[in-house]
Design a protein around this nucleic acid. Structure first.
Length: 264
DNA sequence: GGCTTATGCGCAG
DNA sequence: TGCGCCTAAGCCA
């Protein structure tokens, strides 16, 4: 769900089915009534993903900014759509499809200045063609926090969340407690390259599957925890060495790692 | 059907 | 550091 891959997948989807059309907008829940009225009947020029943020360029209006947070979801149904169920912050409708946004952290209209400020505080997004990995590298060098915390910091790297950070560090055998400024350049290059690959795979499939088929307990389709090396596998044997996967809390989030494969 | 947990993040203190 | 947001999947019965 909502790490960068979800956001870019939604942006792609919305560009495909909503772009160019005059869209009806409403807020059945009532928390975005004024904003919805401002974009109602206007055309979507372009949807864009930036890290975990969705930005919608609306013709003749401000930019619609959506952040799903932990709970937010966008659900699409074919028209004619049934009446909204539950707390729908934004219902956005084209002729063919209807999109219901529930539980977002942010759903607001932003002026160009605010959009620039938002983007300015984000690090490079591995899913964007304009991403400059050097910015992430220098951000890591200038900090003195565990690499596992740095990868979650959206001003260092935009789009990576708790699942990808655990899997990225495992795949490259990096100790999550290593100081960000001690990270070797070769390891950074490998991390960045894998982030691009993993996130792109997530955009295609809509799920986070990081394990290679040869590393999976079951052949073929990755199911549940089978899709990951260490994320949410506390106590289970590491797929590479058999050591029990460990869990610790870091900055209020669960961190998972193999103490044997990821030792400094 | 109910309970637990969560892929995020801003804010109070 | 801990809380609040307030959806939905996964698990159990």
């Amino acid at each position: 769900m909502p790490e960068g891959h979800t956001i870019h997948r939604l942006a792609n989807r919305h560009n495909r089915v909503l772009r160019g059309e005059r869209l009806r907008a409403s807020s059945p829940q009532g928390r975005f009534t004024a904003g919805a009225a401002l974009i109602d009947g206007r055309a979507l020029v372009r949807a864009e993903g930036y890290g975990k943020h969705l930005l919608y360029d609306i013709e003749g209006s401000s930019t619609l900014h959506v952040h799903l947070g932990l709970y937010g979801t966008f659900r699409e149904v074919v028209q004619p759509a049934p009446g909204p169920v539950g707390l729908v912050r934004l219902r956005w409708e084209g002729t063919q499809t209807c999109h219901d946004l529930r539980g977002p952290t942010a759903c607001e209209l932003l002026e160009p200045d605010a959009v620039r400020r938002l983007v300015a505080r984000l690090g490079p997004d591995p899913l964007r063609r304009d991403a400059d990995p050097e910015r992430a590298w220098s951000a890591l060098r200038s900090r003195r926090i565990p690499i596992a915390a740095a990868l979650m910091d959206q001003s260092v790297l935009a789009g990576v969340g708790n699942v990808y950070r655990a899997e990225l560090l495992f795949v490259h055998g990096i100790d999550p407690f290593l100081s960000s400024r001690e990270l070797r350049r070769a390891d950074f290059d490998a991390l960045w390259s894998s982030a691009v690959t993993m996130l792109r795979a997530g955009v295609r499939s809509g799920r986070i599957v990081t394990t290679e088929p040869t590393d999976r307990a079951l052949r073929g389709r990755a199911v549940g925890a089978d899709a990951h090396y260490v994320y949410r596998r506390t106590g289970l044997p590491c797929r590479r060495c058999g050591t029990g996967v460990r869990r610790a809390e870091m900055a209020g989030r669960n961190l998972y790692w193999c103490p044997s494969c990821q030792a400094s």
